[in-house]
Design a protein around this nucleic acid. Sequence first.
DNA 1: CGAAAACAAGAGCAGTGCTCTCGAAATGTG
DNA 2: CACATTTCGAGAGCACTGCTCTTGTTTTCG
Lengths: 226, 226
Amino acid sequence: MAPKSRVENRAEQTRAIQETARRHLAEVGPAALSLRAIAREVGLVSSAVYRYFPSRDDLLTELIVEAYDELGDAVERAQDAAGDDLGARFRALCRAIHDWARANPHEYALVYGSPVPGYAAPDTTVTPAGRVTGAFLALALASERAGHTLAATAPLSPAESAALAPVFDAVGAPIGEERLVRWLMAWKTVFGHVSLELFGHMHRGVLDYDAHFEQVTAQLAADLGL
Amino acid sequence: MAPKSRVENRAEQTRAIQETARRHLAEVGPAALSLRAIAREVGLVSSAVYRYFPSRDDLLTELIVEAYDELGDAVERAQDAAGDDLGARFRALCRAIHDWARANPHEYALVYGSPVPGYAAPDTTVTPAGRVTGAFLALALASERAGHTLAATAPLSPAESAALAPVFDAVGAPIGEERLVRWLMAWKTVFGHVSLELFGHMHRGVLDYDAHFEQVTAQLAADLGL
DNA sequence: CGAAAACAAGAGCAGTGCTCTCGAAATGTG
DNA sequence: CACATTTCGAGAGCACTGCTCTTGTTTTCG
C-alpha cells in the first residue's frame, strides 16, 4: 500500500465520511443521523470526525447542498431530454421533481421538509437551492417570449406586485405580472403535491399518485398556456 | 390543601405534562422536544412521566392530535364567520390555514412537515387530520351544487379518475371529476405555499407574504369559479 | 535534523429515551 | 378496621447522542 500524502488522505477521509453520511441519511433520515454511527462505519472514533467537519450541522449542510445539486441535476437533465417544446419541458420538470423526491424521500425531507432544529441555512446552500426555482422562472420567461396565452388571471394590486420585486429581478428580463404569479402558483402546487404525498397526507385519498400527479401537471400546463 | 383523589390527580398531572409539552413544542420544535425537560418543569423525575405517557412518541401523538384540532377549529371558526358566500368562505378557509401556520410554526411543522423519525401516525390522528381536507371537500361540493363554472379544466383519463376513488367517497355525493381535481389542486397550492413560506423557500423571493398569498387565493377562487 | 502542524484515540461532560427496582401512599376488599 | 393490591414518584442505571480536551504519534516543512 502506497503511503498516502496528507492532503490526499484528508480528501479521501472527507469523502468517505460524507458518502457514509449520505447512505445513513437515505436510510434513517436527517433527524436520526448520528455522527458517531458514521464514524464507526468509516472506522474512526467519533472525535476524529471533528477534524473534517466542525459539527454535525456542517455535515448536514454538505448533505443539503448535495441534495439540492442532485435535484438540480435531475431537473436539468430531464429538461434537456425533453426537447424544445415548452409544454414538454414543463412536464419533464415537474416529473423530475416528483421522481427524485420519491426516490430520495429523506433527502427531499431534508431540504423541503421542516428545518432541523437550531439549524440555520448558511449562504452556501442558497445557490444550489435556487436551481429548481430558477428552472421554473426560466421556463416562465421562455413562455412569455413564446407568447403563450395564459388562462384568465386576475391583475395584481400594487402591493402584490411590489411584494414580488425580488422574483422579477431573478427572472432577469421583463415578464408579465400575471404570468409570473401563475408560474409561482405552479411551483407551489408541485411542491405542495410532493410534500403532501411524501409526508402521508394523501395516503387515504389517492390510490395512484403518478396518475394523479400527471393530471395535476397537465392542468397546470394548460393554465400556463403551454 | 385538599388531598386529591387518585383519579383527579392523574388527570391533573396528565394535563400538566401535556400543557408543558405544548409550550415546549412551540418554543423548541418537535425534534428538540425533551421528555426530561418537560418532567423537570412539571416537577417530576423523568421516569415518572412514563406513568402517564408510555413513550415520547405517544406524547407527540397527543400534540399532533391537538394541533390538528386547533387548526380544524380555526378553519371552521373562520368559515362560520365568513357567511354564506362560497368565495368568501374559501378565502376565509385559506387565510385561516395561513394565519394559524404562521402563528404556530412548530405545530404546523409537526403535522405538515417531515414526519419525525420512526414515528408512524396511529389511527387516532386520522379523524382530526381529515377536518381541514374535509373543509375543502365540503366547499367543493357546495360549489358543485351552486353550479359554479370552473375555469377550463382537462378531462380525466380513466386511470386518473380511478386513482381518486377514495376522495369521491369522502365527498359523499356526486361531484364532477374536473371540479374535484381543481379543488385538490387548490388544496395543494395552499399547503405548498404555506410550507414553502414557513420552511424558508420564499425568503429571498417574496417581500410581503400576506399580499402574495392574497393574490394566490384570489386566483384559486377564480379558477374554481367562486 | 528538529520544530510545527495534523491527526487519531481516549476519556469525559452533559444531555437524551427508556427500564427496573424500591419505598410510600392511596385504594378496594375481607 | 385491617390487610392486600394497585398506583405512583424517585433513583439508579443502560445505551446512546454531540462535543471538548488531552495525549501520544505521525507527517510535513523549514
